[in-house]
Design a protein around this nucleic acid. Structure first.
Lengths: 351, 351
DNA sequence: TCAAGTCTTGAGAACGCTCTCAAGATGCGT
DNA sequence: ACGCATCTTGAGAGCGTTCTCAAGACTTGA
């Protein structure tokens, strides 16, 4: 049995290049004061030996851990997952994060944490103690969880709050929910719709309110009333079914619905089908999220594309660039886009 | 500005409990020789101070890093992702892995690596050097990549090969592809189908061959020929379109198709629709993967559920349990299940 | 009761790296 | 040429753990 090849350490490189550890370290970290000639020599040794610094050792001695921790809601993630509803949010987050992290020599880890458990502090605290990440990315609904933000602030760990524009510690980022809802609503108005309902998300998500705001503002722009056109769901399919039914029952003249999640939109599609309503001829539908499932429904859904990956990527960059003093008051906003497919059409009776 | 709270270390606990570092370490790691009385005292201190060992320090001194690294194909993942096709595989893997890892005090990290780049060794080698994971999980098509398995073996890092039953180093796990294909085909035969086509995956994936084997075996069981009923795709939508067209052109009497991916099945569904074929009345369809998209197509697709999360979970457990000598010849097989939805029906003309 | 274990505990080194600080080399102004 | 500042290099400590090994306490058997 071949002897286990020991890992190459900075010492090996130093020996090979005939310099001290410190010099190698400087070269690796792009330190300023090294003669070009020596630098090249060390680089050659690094290359030849295939040396890569140990993350653990770097963390031990240096101040950085090169780890960014992304926090997701455990309950929702696991529910989505075990019911095979898809966990697009995790995907987008992970991939957007991984790519940007690796661009800067960092790594991303994902942690699932319960929001409304009193174990928040325990779970998150443990993860932080174990990993000592250089930054943490909070996603809704954790982004505005007081317990969490205070814990992070107390430990002086830079963090980003995605989907939060509230003042407070951390870097706030949003995905333009108000603007996106306004955009979607405006587009429907442009298509001649006047009775446009909204199936909103649960109120513990700030973005739910923002979307309602955007929808109301667009209606207001054209002097269209919004009374009786709002229902609240929980992002899930069943809640979408209930909401769509209530909306349709209450408003026989409804010609368009904007749903705050793909699941709820697909539920509305099903409800419409049950009632003999053709989408988009009789009823137009726009959903939020633009996860893969809406591309293959019949018809494919027009959707607001939530730029999750892009937003996480921005968050990672901010975290890495700012380091220490990462608090910010200016909200970073990554704009969402409207992807038009076949669930939207001119309002019935329109030219 | 509040002074930064320094992290709690083993030293703090030792001081608090009035014992040596070593004793705390023993308690933390469940070491055997500690008086119950002392153990409880130390535990109380740990609890009170909220001590959690630093992963980095543990890695530094101990032999374990408590990190499991999961490798995915970068090219395919990024393509799926940027085109918003969904990256269900990553999801399943990540979540299945995270859950099982955390159950054992481990952490999972995901790394994207190109298969057919000559940089494989460089990329993977760098990740391994930096992270020094206790185990690596390989997914198709990396599972049988010689360069990778040899690299891992040379560095004496335990690894699992998902979707590989070939002999060699590492722990082989499969998801019962042969059996699943056999199951799906048998079910169609049971429904009266006799002309059952297969759209297979690309040949560099072993599972493609296994699925073909299962399909052939089921047909053989009933003396049904398979000539002209096989097409090869690349798992993508377009290739599914091409394959379905070719199959239908060549076999006007075709009544069922098994596709090796959801995307290809949805493409076949579209082709059928174009040709005025009703699914499932005129044509039955079964897909592999069972990602969320097939639940919302019209009709929802009957699909083979690939137990990715479960398989990764098993892999993690094996890796953790076996540690050092992780090579194995017995293939671990996690069975796939057939989820019947509405794309399958008795063959036309059947009672 | 004593020798020979076995248990329990702790001291000190080691892991691979970066930090701080000091020493030597080099450059500049006069 | 000389003194001083700056650039370049290296030595040594320290990060938080676990490992090895030795010492003391406690059992056990004859």
């Amino acid at each position: 049995m071949a002897r286990v090849r020991k890992a190459v350490t900075i010492k090996d490189v130093a020996g090979d290049a005939g310099v001290s550890l410190q010099t190698v370290s400087r070269v690796v970290n792009g330190g300023p004061n090294v003669r070009p000639q020596l630098r090249d020599k060390v680089r050659a040794s690094i290359e030849r030996l295939g040396y890569v610094p140990s993350l653990a050792a770097q963390r031990m001695s240096g101040s950085r851990s090169y780890i960014i921790l992304a926090i997701n809601d455990r309950e929702r993630t696991l529910a989505d997952w075990s019911e095979r509803r898809g966990t697009d949010w995790v995907d987008q987050m992970l991939l957007g994060g991984i790519l940007t992290c690796s661009k800067h020599g960092y790594r991303m880890m994902v942690e699932l944490v319960d929001t409304h458990s009193d174990h928040v502090e325990r779970e998150l605290g443990a993860a932080i103690s174990a990993l000592q990440p250089d930054g943490v990315i909070l996603t809704p609904p954790h982004s505005e969880n007081r317990l969490i933000t205070e814990l992070l602030a107390a430990r002086a760990i830079p963090f980003a709050r995605i989907g939060s524009n509230a003042p407070g510690p951390g870097i706030p980022l949003t995905m333009g929910d108000e603007g996106a809802a306004h955009l979607a609503t405006s587009r429907l108005i442009e298509l001649g719709h006047r009775r446009i309902a909204m199936i909103a998300g649960p109120s513990q998500y700030s973005l739910s309110a923002w979307r309602i705001d955007g929808w109301r503002r667009a209606l207001g722009d054209h002097g269209i009333p919004s009374e009786g056109l709002l229902e609240v769901g929980d992002f899930g399919y069943e809640s979408g079914t209930r909401a769509a039914r209530a909306l349709l029952d209450r408003n026989p003249d409804l010609t368009a619905i904007i749903a705050s999640s793909d699941q709820m939109a697909l539920a509305a599609l099903e409800v419409a089908r049950d009632r003999g309503l053709n989408v988009p001829r009789d009823l137009s539908l726009i959903s939020f999220d633009n996860t893969p499932i809406v591309r293959f429904s019949q018809p494919p859904l027009t959707a607001i594309d939530q730029p999750i990956a892009e937003t996480v990527s921005r968050a990672v960059e901010q975290l890495i660039a700012r380091g220490e003093d990462s608090d910010s008051d200016t909200v970073i906003e990554v704009a969402a886009a409207l992807v038009e497919r076949s669930s939207t059409a001119p309002a019935p009776g329109t030219a």
